[in-house]
């Protein structure tokens, strides 16, 4: 339409001309603002690519020496001999995260339900800041508390109990380690750390459910628990998935608290009471320490790359699940 502008402008009275100085200024303001904000927003994507790119670049030397399956599945980590099998760390990370999520997710969702559905608004006023505070406590404090409380609990109570009652069914509960520094201890500490995150998100999801939907359910004679089942499992599912993904990402990458209680043993674990080692702890403990060993830095970068890829793919998977669900019908 701009093509016709010139003749029309020429015939227009001066007072109605739209391309006045003032108008041009406003238009430029808008364009420049949009450009700056757009660049900043898009640079987030650039940041992700930059982090991945640098890790990949620095991991290339080890990838040239050893194949990817060898790195991922070999169980021998002996840098001095040039053997960089990451399987113990990968398994350790997955095991610790799994224990944390299995403990935290169900309990945290139940707590979130209580907070949103059953608690009076006055009690909630007190309770909300407490959960926020718990989420804000530095990991090192959780780690210390883990050393002082959780590790002895696992050593003296949990591991012997599991050995007596559960080990007969699965050797993964055998009490193999007299120290208490173990996958179980790390998982429990982590579960405490992701707990408030999942509680908060669950609560927010439930409270975001339209009042009318809740009223409709109550008017049909549903109990609070029945109302919650519908709102959480159907209307609130995307939010719950988001909560779990966020908790998972947090747990998977958590470094300090885990390395304080997991024992840092680079061996394939056979029981949840074995000492283990996680990818993040591996990097944090060793980067800058043993750099004289050839390829060591590159191997650590590879470990970082694995961490990044797992978290990215987990988030991507959750995102795909949610968008597909949204497309399938407006139920989410």
């Amino acid at each position: 339409m701009d093509r016709q502008q010139e003749p029309r402008n020429a015939s227009q009275p001066a007072g109605l001309r739209v391309d006045s100085m003032h108008h041009r200024m406003r238009r430029w303001q808008d364009r420049i603002g949009q450009a700056i904000m757009g660049a900043l927003a898009w640079s987030l994507l650039g940041l992700l690519l930059a982090i991945g790119g640098v890790l990949l670049l620095r991991a290339l030397p080890i990838l040239e020496r050893a194949s990817v399956p060898e790195l991922l599945f070999s169980t021998t980590w002996q840098p001095m001999r040039g053997l960089f099998g990451m399987a113990p760390f990968i398994v350790g990370t997955i095991a610790v995260t799994l224990v944390a999520m299995l403990v935290a997710v169900p309990l945290a969702i139940l707590s979130g339900i209580y907070l949103a559905e059953y608690m009076t608004s006055r009690a909630r006023l007190f309770f909300k800041p407490v959960t926020d505070l718990l989420a804000g406590i530095p990991p090192v404090v959780y780690g210390l508390w883990g050393v002082l409380v959780v590790v002895p609990f696992v050593r003296n109570e949990l591991a012997p109990w599991a050995d007596r009652n559960l080990a007969a069914y699965c050797s993964c509960f055998a009490n193999t380690n007299p120290s208490g520094y173990s996958i179980a201890a790390a998982g429990l500490v982590l579960s405490l750390m992701v707990y408030p995150i999942i509680v908060t998100i669950t609560e927010e999801v439930l409270r975001a459910v339209p009042r009318e939907l809740r009223e409709a359910l109550f008017a049909l004679g549903a109990t609070r628990w029945e109302v919650t089942k519908v709102t959480l499992l159907r209307a609130g599912l995307p939010g719950v998935v988001a909560a779990v993904v966020l908790g998972f990402s947090r747990a998977f990458g958590e470094t300090l608290a885990v390395l304080m209680v997991v024992g840092n043993v680079p061996r394939m674990p056979g029981s949840i009471f074995d000492g283990s080692y996680t990818l993040a702890a591996l990097i944090a403990n060793n980067y800058g320490e043993m750099m004289s060993v050839p390829l060591y830095e590159s191997a650590l970068m590879g470990a970082g790359l694995v961490l990044l890829l797992v978290v990215v793919s987990f988030n991507l998977g959750a995102w795909l699940f949610l968008t597909r669900r949204l497309k399938r019908g407006g139920e989410a």
């Binding site: 339209p210 009318e212 939907l213 359910l217 008017a219 049909l220 004679g221 519908v230």
Partner: peptide
Amino acid sequence: VTEVRTQVGMLAQKPFPLPM
């Protein structure tokens, strides 16, 4: 209360189908 609400049905101002 749930017993009361089985005797008393309600039609709200805006239709709000359950997500099912």
